[in-house]
Amino acid sequence: MSTLTTPEESQLEAFTHTLCAELLRGPDPFVIVTCDATLSFRLGDFARLHPGRVVDVGVAEATAVAAAFGLWRGGLKVVVAGFAAFLSLRALEPIRSLVALHEADVTFLAGMTGLSAGRDGAQHHATEDAALLRAVPGIEVVAPSDASDARALATYCATHPGPRWVRLVRRPVHLDGQPATGARSWTPTRWLTPPPPDGRVLLCAHGALSEQVQQAARLLTRHHGIPAAALQVGRLSPVPPELAAALRGFPVVLAVEDQNRPGGLAAALDEALTADTVGGTRPHLVRCDLTAPPGSGDYTDLLRATGLTAEQLADRAATAVHDMKDPTASGGNA
């Protein structure tokens, strides 16, 4: 007799299901505007049960943002859901001119971020959105890691006004030692491994790549003999005030992201270090990001091709530690 298995909940599903439930419980009237993405965001059942709550404008991202602004001016809390690659590039100007400059209560659900939609084709890669939205004043740029974190962030988004850009992936994210269920408050930074008192390496990631940095930190500690820790940076803008203290004390810090090099996580870490008033020795910041278009393909294969698997990150960190000890090695950011 065959046994039916329940598909594992993706990060995006955990977020959208919790967000809808929290919005229904909340006091504010709301509407969700999607860009031909109602089914992609797993909102089909919600749209059938609440047809007046979901408006699909089709493949028209700028129109979705303009409609969201008008609906907000009409007294509604608004959520806009679309593929991050297209929403960030096609609608950046109305996001800035309408939503950000007017401080509108609009939350953007930017789906399939980074390389996570790799099999849909290279044009679906969202490898610029973090930098683009960080450059828009007034937009909060956030991302959850696993399903537990996604539910906590969804509750935060439902109860705190925008404008906000939420980066999501439609795949499960696996973290060990983290609560799988149960309510908790969302925080802009979260330790994924306990920070050792004599830590040599801190691996930082934003969103789904938290899975890789947690594994890499453990590989460094157990197999390379290098005390390491992993930190999830759940908010890229504004930079969390506690971030500088977390970075302080680690000689080597890795910024891990499936984004193009300028303006993303590494820039946020650099901002935190630059604004640090305590001072001390500045960590050696190693960029682990994209330096060339990776093409299309399976997500795991794309991570390997771009050097972002846990094993590759651990090797990269071990090399950076070795170079720090070698007086002939060149300094600066990698």
Rank of each mutant, 00 (worst) to 15 (best):
Ser2His: 13
Pro7Leu: 07
Glu9Ile: 15
Glu9Gly: 08
Ala14Trp: 05
Phe15Leu: 15
Pro27Trp: 08
Phe30Ser: 00
Val31Ser: 11
Ile32Pro: 09
Ile32Lys: 12
Cys35Met: 08
Gly44Pro: 08
Asp45Tyr: 04
Leu49Ala: 15
Pro51Met: 08
Gly52Trp: 02
Leu71Lys: 07
Leu71Ala: 14
Arg73Cys: 13
Val80Thr: 11
Gly82Asn: 05
Ala85Gly: 01
Ala91Cys: 03
Leu92Thr: 09
Pro94Val: 12
Pro94Ala: 11
Leu101Tyr: 11
His102Trp: 12
Glu103Ile: 00
Ala104Leu: 08
Thr107Cys: 04
Thr107Gly: 03
Phe108Cys: 04
Met112Ser: 08
Leu115Ala: 03
Ser116Leu: 03
His124Ala: 01
Thr127Cys: 05
Ala131Tyr: 10
Val141Pro: 11
Ser148Asn: 13
Arg151Gly: 13
Ala158Met: 06
Arg170Asp: 07
Arg171Met: 14
Pro172Asp: 03
Ala180Asp: 15
Leu192Asp: 12
Thr193Pro: 02
Val201Gly: 06
Leu203Val: 01
Ala205Asn: 02
Ala208Lys: 03
Leu209Ala: 09
Ser210Val: 06
Ala216Glu: 01
Ala216Asn: 09
Thr221Leu: 05
Arg222Cys: 06
His224Ile: 12
His224Gly: 01
Pro227Trp: 08
Ala229Val: 06
Ala230Cys: 02
Pro238His: 05
Pro240Tyr: 02
Gly249Val: 02
Phe250Cys: 05
Pro251His: 03
Pro251Val: 07
Arg261Pro: 04
Arg261Ala: 13
Ala266Ser: 13
Ala272Gln: 04
Ala275Arg: 15
Val286Phe: 02
Arg287Cys: 04
Arg287Met: 05
Asp289Thr: 14
Arg304Ile: 00
Ala317Phe: 12
Thr319Arg: 14
Asp323Trp: 01
Pro327His: 08
Ala334Gln: 11
